[in-house]
């Protein structure tokens, strides 16, 4: 019985399935397209993935509490616009723009948390509202201007080297990937081994029981959204680095790719379970599809169709797993 269970456990653990999917996708595109094999493609893929990774790490927390945060896509663009405006139009140093973007993210996260945990708004609605608000605020605060952050060669362009170092001979080393791994390790630790992480899972699994255990549920519930906002703010920095000019009014829809990544990576769509490592690999499933499919002649629209199908599969696994747990306990 136990033997059977453990074999089943590995197979039904989405974390491992998703790693296999990432490897399989990579091999597939690698074999199917000569252009995909180029080093620059890999650098582009990574450049492009950082802000999705950050958003997805963040949104994993509200998802695990059984909620969601739809404001991270428009939010990230809003924070990048505001930070960029301060740098480009006001002339403040780049680090100020970065800190403002991150803090702005935390504030919107706090707002989401208060709406959900204190005012008891359904997370879907609360964050749909802040999604609209950040979309409008981004345009207003940048005075409807498209905002460029400094390019690598301009003064203040040093921030690009957080993610990518240009070596002699114009070879680019994507060191941003190391930062991502570091953040994944830290946040995985937070989720697994700290009170905040444990209570995030507990709230998503059985909020009532958590409350009756004498835990300050409201505080931890809000914190899940603040962390999410913090990561949306952090995501604004690689976004500003990857996108030459930030357009007001954009960003809607990017949250769905991040949420999709988290769910593909095994975060339960109904809350209560998930892992940051899983989210990390889940995001790469989505990014590989986004970048890889055009190389085999399929437009980006196909990526959305295929991602949708993969998501259905991921959610089905989650549902079957939950049902099995219920029948096992009965």
């Amino acid at each position: 019985m136990t033997k059977k269970k453990s074999a089943l456990g590995v197979l039904s653990n989405q974390k491992y399935i998703v790693i296999l999917v990432v490897i399989a996708l990579y091999i597939f595109f690698f074999a199917a397209s000569v252009d995909f094999r180029k080093y620059t493609t890999m650098v582009t893929l990574l450049d492009y993935s950082y802000y999705y990774v950050l958003m997805a790490i963040g949104v994993s927390f509200p998802l695990i509490t059984g909620g969601v945060d739809l404001s991270i896509g428009t939010g990230m663009v809003c924070y990048a616009l505001v930070g960029g405006y301060l740098v480009h139009n006001v002339g403040l140093p780049v680090w100020v723009g970065m800190i403002v973007a991150i803090l702005f993210g935390c504030v919107i996260g706090l707002l989401n948390g208060v709406l959900v945990a204190i005012m008891n708004l359904p997370p879907f609605l609360a964050t749909l509202c802040t999604c609209m608000i950040t979309r409008g605020l981004g345009s207003l605060l940048s005075f409807k201007n498209a905002i460029p952050w400094p390019t690598a060669k301009q003064p203040g362009g040093w921030f690009h080297s957080i993610f990518k170092i240009t070596m002699a001979g114009n070879t680019k080393i994507p060191i941003g990937f190391l930062w991502m791994i570091l953040l994944v390790v830290i946040m995985a630790f937070v989720l697994k081994h700290t009170k905040f992480g444990r209570y995030t899972i507990a709230i998503g699994s059985n909020k009532e029981a958590t409350l009756l255990s004498g835990i300050n549920v409201k505080f931890y519930h809000i914190m899940a959204y603040v962390i999410c906002g913090l990561f949306a703010g952090l995501a604004a920095i690689p976004y500003a680095s990857a996108i030459p000019t930030i357009q007001p009014g954009t960003g809607a829809g990017m949250e769905l790719d991040a949420i999709g990544g988290a769910i593909v990576g095994g975060v339960s769509a109904t809350g209560g379970s998930g892992s940051i490592e899983g989210t990390f690999f889940g995001v790469y499933v989505i990014c590989l599809l986004k970048v890889g499919l055009p190389f085999i002649g399929l437009q980006a629209n196909w990526q959305q169709v295929i991602t949708g199908l993969i998501l259905i599969g991921a959610v089905m696994i989650d549902i079957v797993k939950k049902r099995r747990a219920v029948t096992a306990a009965a």
């Binding site: 444990r198 899972i201 507990a202 998503g204 699994s205 059985n206 009532e208 029981a209 958590t210 009756l212 255990s213 209560g272 379970s273 747990a325 306990a329």
Partner: peptide, 11 residues
């Protein structure tokens, strides 16, 4: 029973 199903017994 007031138990959090997704956590372990000890937790």
């Amino acid at each position: 029973l007031n138990m959090v199903g997704d956590l372990t017994v000890a937790q």
